[in-house]
Every structure is written in C-alpha cells, then in structure tokens.
Amino acid sequence: MDLTRDTHLFKPAVKRIAWGSRVQRWRRVKDSCARMSSGTAVLIVCLLVGVIAATLVIRSWPILSAYPLDELLTGQTWQPLHGRFGFAPFIAGSIAVTLVAMMLAVIPAVFSGIYLAEYTSSRARAALKPLIDLLVGIPSVVYGLWGILFIIPLVRDVIGPWSDRTLGQVFPFFARTNPSGYGLLSAGFVLAVMVFPLIVAVTEEVLRSAPREMRETLLALGATRWETTQCIVRRAGLPGILAAIVLGFSRAFGETLAIMMLIGNVPQMPTSLFDAAYSLPALIANNYGEIMSVPLYESALMGAALALLAVVLLFNILARLVIVRLTQAQAR
C-alpha cells in the first residue's frame, strides 16, 4: 500500500491525534467557553469605574458648561431657584467635618493598629479581627441614631458650655455658636468612631508585612519593645500608615447618612467647632426629591457626586498604590 498516495485514509486518525478524542475536544471547548465568559466579567469590572465617571460627567455637563468652574467651586450662595449654584459651603463643610473626625480618630486608631500588629499574639489577632469586621458592618444609620441619642446631648449640655467657658473666650474656633448640639463636633465624633476600624485594619496589615528580621535584630540588640516599634514604624511603616489615614479620610469624606443626621444641614462656611454645616453627600441625599422641578438642579447634584468621586478616586488610588508596593515588596 502506498502510504504517501492514500493520505485521505489517515486523515481522521491524524485529526484525532491533533484534537484528541471527542470527549477531550468537548472538555477543551468547555474550558475556552469558561475562559471567555469569566474574562468578560473581568472586562466589565475593569470598565465599571470609567463608565461611572463618564456617566456623571455627562449628566453634570449642563451645569459645568453653564457656569465657569471657579464660580461653582467658590460661590457661597446656594439658591437653585434663582439659578445660583455655589458649592463652597458644602465643600468646606465636608472637609471640615472630615478633618474633625480625622483629628479625633487618627492617633488612637494608628496606636491601636500598631498594638495589634506588634504586641498581640496571632491567636488574639484572630479573635479581634472578626470584631473589627463587626464594627465596620454596623449600618451608618445606626451610628447616626447613636449620635442623636448620646453624642448630641453630650455636646449640647456638657462639652459645648464647657468649651465656651474656657477656650471659647480666647479662640473663636471653640466658641459655642449653636446651642442645639447638631454640628461639626457631633458629626465629626461619630464619623471618627466609624472610620476607626478601617484605619486600624489597614495599619495592622501594613505593619505586619514589615520584615521580621528587623524586629528580631532590634530586640537582640537590647532595644525595648517600644523602641523596636518606633524604629519599624519609622523605617518600614510610615508610608503605609499614611495610606491608612488617607483611606480613612476618603471613607469619611463620602459618608452620607450618619453625617446628614448630625451635622445640622445649614449651608454656611463653618468657623467654629460647634457650627452647623452641610456636606456634599448630604446635599445630594437631601435634595433628590425636588430635582425634577428646577432646571439644572439634577445636573448640579450630579456635579456634586462627580466632585465626590474625583476626590475619593484620587485619594484611593494614591493610597492603594502605596499599600500594594509595600505588601508586595514583602511577599517577594
């Protein structure tokens, strides 16, 4: 038999060798189907942030093109009915309440994170981790309610009068301008409790990725535990801790309901710790019902959402890049 002439007889066999049996072919087809469909999901996730940003830009375009940007950002009057859209009080309120919260939260949270990373056994950490998750999981409306029940009376009846009598006489920043208790300090305090677990968790994660040899070397040289910790934080942990703080800041910046319940919702530039103010998320949340009736109103609120997204994205990307670099350097 001339093999070279009768190749057609061998074709099925050759094909079977190349493709495998029917079962194997089917397995491969299934595999590539799965690869493509899950790849599509990955693509969706990757595009999502871009789509959200683009949508918000498109929706807020009417107001961005109707007014110059500096007028929107620095304008101090908010009268949508008269076509005046000044975002300055809301931006200032958001920044102020976030700063108050960070002032109260950062030092305790960073120290707690350091303690969890450097001083506790892995078993204690395993027990505390779910507790932190629990704290993160409590809905913000519950925090807000707690603030109304306990923090507002505290600020109104105790802290406010005390601060007014002592520091308020000298610094107008501590003067009690608002007897109701609803204002920057109350909102800031509750916000501080809310971002505390986030800062603790990130600080702990970042510090734990510091090389262990460093710890052992320092202790072997006779350093006390605190000196060891100091050195590790200074040499290896500082960028990570900064990232944790920035993450906490951006979380606090976007918090909506708890702030809305406690800040007083008065669109003014805050000058004192006890002033009522208004935040960007609260602006969006409070006015969604009326947006249909006034021209440009919806666009203005979408602009507020866009501003919020821009700030949060910027901070998040910076912080995450730092964290990724730190934790991956350790993994290698």
Partner: peptide, 27 residues
C-alpha cells in the same frame, strides 16, 4: 492583570455608596 483587577476592586470599595446611588439614578 490579576493585580490590576485587584487594585480596581479595592478602589471601587472606596467609592462612597451615594455615588453609586447617583450613578444608579442616572442609569
């Protein structure tokens, strides 16, 4: 790719839910 997707998800975690609400409203 995996690391970039992870980064994207972390960043998405940071976006405030009111922004998702506003986006959902537009949608």
């Amino acid at each position: 790719l995996a690391n970039n997707v992870r980064l994207t998800l972390d960043i998405m975690w940071g976006i405030p839910s009111i922004v998702y609400g506003a986006f959902g409203f537009s949608l």
